[in-house]
Simulated assay, not measured.
Amino acid sequence: MRKICYEFFAIEQVYPDIEINVDKFSVTEIVDMFSVIEQVYKHIVLEVGTYKVKTAKHIIFEFEVGTVKNLDITNAEEEELVFDEDVEESGNRFELCLVGKFLTEKNLNVRVMKSKLADIWRPAMGISIKTLTEGLYLFQFFHKDDMQWMMNNGPWSFDNAILVTNTIPTWEDPTKVPLNEAEFWVQIYDLPTSFMTKAVGRQLGNFFGKFVSYDSTNNTSIWREYMRLRIRLDIRLPLKRRKKICRRDRTEFIVTCKYEKLGDFCFRCGVLSHTERSCKKRLNANLEEEVK
């Protein structure tokens, strides 16, 4: 009696819509009940063994019931639940939002940061800056022009720490959006005048990073000191500083790249995502010297 009650209790816990009271059923009814449960919940296999009936003052049922196989709620959990179209979220509620982080190892004063950026950007329709997790922020704009202006005029920084942002795709969790790239304006020096063209700028931009745009306003005079490009950088990779160029007559020259508003970065390995203080390359070098 106790064993069959345990088996029924397990079923009741997983499927609350089944209510079983063994005392109310005869032996035949209980056996039939197993069959019904198997039909309704097809992923449950119940094995009922032999049973004995003892007669005393009252009839007591003793069952030798096999184990309940595949009694696993994960089967039910893995079944797909498809919502009706009218209950699905329409559009992207993060359409006017950016998620971002600062490339720094310092503890920032979040309150001052919010006030400072809002004062610098001065969006016409306002802005809301919220902390998602430690070091990760949500920048909510209220007009697309305000957000676009902020994206086009970066990079932005606070306390000399570069702000890396990204848009949030539809249905994406803001905390899982990758923050590995940032856009910078760069100046290319030592280019001959004949090479000061957008076509050359595109190739150079794709060498130093990913070409985004060419500053044509920097091309208003006959002679220019440098070419100005906007490129997208992978902050996990070392910054490139120069490139050798070969003319058609096989003569060579070297151009150098200077980054605008670069902020803190590692002088040891040239990576933006950390400073020299926490550079693993420097720390490993120090360890090797100590071993020697």
Results as ranks from 00 to 15, higher is better:
Q140M: 06
K144W: 08
S194Y: 11
D159T: 02
Q140D: 07
M113Y: 05
N180H: 11
L136P: 05
D159Y: 03
L136I: 01
T133K: 04
W185A: 03
W171Y: 15
N153I: 05
T197R: 06
N160A: 10
Y214E: 09
M196N: 10
Q203E: 14
G135P: 12
T170K: 07
Q148G: 12
Y214F: 15
V200G: 06
F141I: 05
T133S: 03
N152F: 10
T131I: 09
N206K: 07
F208K: 04
G209D: 10
K176N: 15
W171F: 13
L138N: 02
L163T: 07
G205V: 07
G126Q: 05
F207L: 04
I127Y: 10
P174L: 00
S115A: 06
P123T: 01
F184T: 09
P192Q: 05
N153W: 11
W156A: 00
H143Q: 13
T133I: 01
Q187K: 03
D173I: 08
P192L: 01
V186C: 05
K210S: 15
G126A: 03
W185K: 06
V212W: 10
M147L: 15
H143R: 11
F184V: 05
M147Q: 15
K176L: 11
E134M: 08
S213Y: 03
M150I: 14
F184W: 08
H143S: 13
W149S: 15
S216C: 14
F139Q: 01
V186S: 06
